[in-house]
């Protein structure tokens, strides 16, 4: 089972091209970040729809912390996030692998030396 209903022979593909506005009902898409425990970073948990920040916050609480997942929440309109482009991934992130000397394992320490 795939939860997908088998395709009927006569079934057309619906037109999936976005029709103008992405917000037909006028509600924004928000990204939710949760701090799981004090002392930890807020971590992205998922997204939801809300008309404004207060409702987004309340919905985030109800949707993403039903099982005690967090102690603090951030909600951010998705449109406010600037993200890196997948096509740039190689130029952004690959060069760091050329600098192994940034890693502690790069350095050999004599066995008899402690606390280093």
């Amino acid at each position: 089972m795939t939860y997908s209903v088998p395709r009927l022979p006569e079934e057309p593909d619906p037109d999936l091209r976005s029709k103008g506005s992405r917000r037909v009902s006028g509600w924004l898409l928000w990204e939710v970040f949760i701090r799981p425990r004090r002392g930890l970073h807020h971590v992205h948990a998922g997204s939801l729809h809300a008309p404004d920040g207060e409702i987004a916050l309340q919905s985030a609480r109800d949707v993403y912390t039903r099982r005690g997942e967090g102690v603090s929440l951030w909600v951010v309109p998705s449109s406010e996030i600037t993200s890196s482009d997948a096509a740039d991934a190689a130029s952004l992130f690959d060069p760091t692998s050329e600098k192994p000397f940034r890693d502690a394992t790069f350095y050999q320490v004599p066995d008899e030396v402690e606390w280093l």
Binding site: S25, W27, L48, H49, A50, I55, Q58, S59, D62, V63, R66
Partner: peptide, 11 residues
């Protein structure tokens, strides 16, 4: 009225 509110009211 929407899925988010469904969850809120159930809570």
């Amino acid at each position: 009225p929407d899925l988010e509110e469904d969850i809120a009211m159930a809570n």
